[in-house]
C-alpha cells in the first residue's frame, strides 16, 4: 500500500514560534520533484519508531521546494518533534484531505477566522489569496490568540498587514502589560469586520467551541451556511479512510474533509460524543 509508506524528509530549518509551538521546514530526500499540496491538506508525520500523527501543512502552496508544518507540542509525537533540529529526518505520507475552497471563493470577499494554533492550517490560504490577490475581494483575517506572546507568525502577520490590501485584526484573550491591541475573544471581532456578507466565503479553524460561536456570529451577519467552512479534527491513524477512527457521522474526516462547509455538517456539528 503505497499511501501507507512514509518517505524521508530532512529538516532544513527549525523555528520556535512561541513557547509551545514550532515550525519545521522540510525537504524531500528521496525525490527532487518537490511537494505539491492545496491549502488545508495535511500530512501524516512519522517520527522514527515513536509514532505518526496528522498535521496540516502551514507553508506556501506555491513553493513546492519546501514543505512546512507548524504544530504545538501536546502529545507524545509532537513533544518528540519539538526536540528535532536542523538536519534531522522525519517520514512523511501525504498530502491527504479536501482543501479549503480557495477556487470556489474566487470573486468573493474572504474572511479567515483563526484561533490559536488554528492559524497554521489557514496560512496557506493567506499565501494563496495574496499571491492571487486580483481574484478576490476584500481579505480579512480575524485572529484570536491566548496572550500577545502566543500570537503565531507575528512578524509575518505584520508584513502582510503592511501590504494594505488585507485587513488583519488580532485579539488576545488575556492582555499583558504593554499590549495596546484588542482584548476579547475572536468572535467579538465578527460583528464589525469589513466584509460584504452576501459575497463572502468564511474559513474557520480553531477549537470546536470557538468554531461554533464563530458560526453563530457569521450567520448573524447574514452569511449563508454554505459559505462558511470549518476544518474538523478527530483521531486519525491512516489518513486514507481505512482505519475508521475519524468517522464523523457519514463522513471520514481524512478523505471527505478535513474541510467541510457548515451546511454539509450542520446536522453533526456540536453533537455530543459523535
Amino acid at each position: 500500500m503505497q499511501a501507507m509508506i512514509p518517505s524521508s524528509y530532512r529538516i532544513q530549518k527549525f523555528i520556535k514560534e512561541t513557547q509551545d509551538t514550532f515550525t519545521i521546514e522540510l525537504k524531500s530526500i528521496e525525490s527532487k520533484n518537490g511537494f505539491t499540496f492545496e491549502p488545508g491538506q495535511f500530512n501524516m508525520i512519522y517520527i522514527y519508531g515513536i509514532g505518526e500523527i496528522p498535521i496540516s501543512i502551514s507553508g506556501d502552496p506555491n513553493k513546492s521546494g519546501i514543505l512546512t508544518h507548524t504544530t504545538r507540542a501536546v502529545g507524545i509525537v509532537t513533544k518528540e518533534m519539538a526536540k528535532l533540529k536542523k538536519g534531522d529526518i522525519v517520514g512523511i505520507r501525504g498530502p491527504f484531505g479536501r482543501p479549503w475552497p480557495v477556487r470556489e471563493a474566487v470573486g468573493n470577499d474572504i474572511v479567515i477566522v483563526a484561533g490559536g494554533i488554528g492559524l497554521a492550517p489557514l496560512r496557506p490560504v493567506i499565501y494563496h489569496v495574496l499571491e492571487n490577490r486580483e481574484y478576490y475581494g476584500r481579505i480579512i483575517l480575524l485572529y484570536g490568540a491566548r496572550t500577545p506572546q502566543d500570537i503565531l507568525f507575528r512578524k509575518e502577520l505584520e508584513k502582510f498587514r503592511s501590504r494594505l490590501d488585507i485587513d488583519i485584526i488580532v485579539t488576545v484573550d488575556r492582555a499583558i502589560k504593554g499590549w495596546t491591541g484588542n482584548v476579547g475573544v475572536v468572535t467579538t471581532l465578527i460583528p464589525r469586520a469589513p466584509f460584504d456578507p452576501i459575497n463572502t466565503i468564511a474559513m474557520i479553524c480553531g477549537p470546536e467551541i470557538m468554531m461554533r460561536y464563530t458560526i453563530i456570529e457569521l450567520i448573524k451577519r447574514g452569511l449563508g451556511k454554505d459559505k462558511i467552512y470549518v476544518t474538523m479534527e478527530r483521531n486519525m491513524k491512516c489518513g486514507i479512510g481505512f482505519c475508521g477512527h475519524c468517522q464523523y457521522g457519514t463522513e471520514f474526516i481524512c478523505k471527505d474533509g478535513p474541510v467541510f462547509s457548515y451546511k454539509e455538517i450542520e446536522h453533526l456539528f456540536g453533537k455530543r460524543e459523535l
Binding site: D20, V74, G115, G116, I117, G144, A145, R146, D150, D173, R174, G184, V185, T187, T188, G206, P207, I209, M210, Y213
Partner: peptide, 18 residues
C-alpha cells in the same frame, strides 16, 4: 448577552493547554 458569552469563552481559555 454578548459580553457574558464572550466572557465565558474567555474563561474557557480555549487556546490554552488542554
Amino acid at each position: 448577552d454578548n459580553r457574558i458569552s464572550a466572557m465565558r469563552m474567555q474563561l474557557l481559555d480555549l487556546f490554552g493547554k488542554s
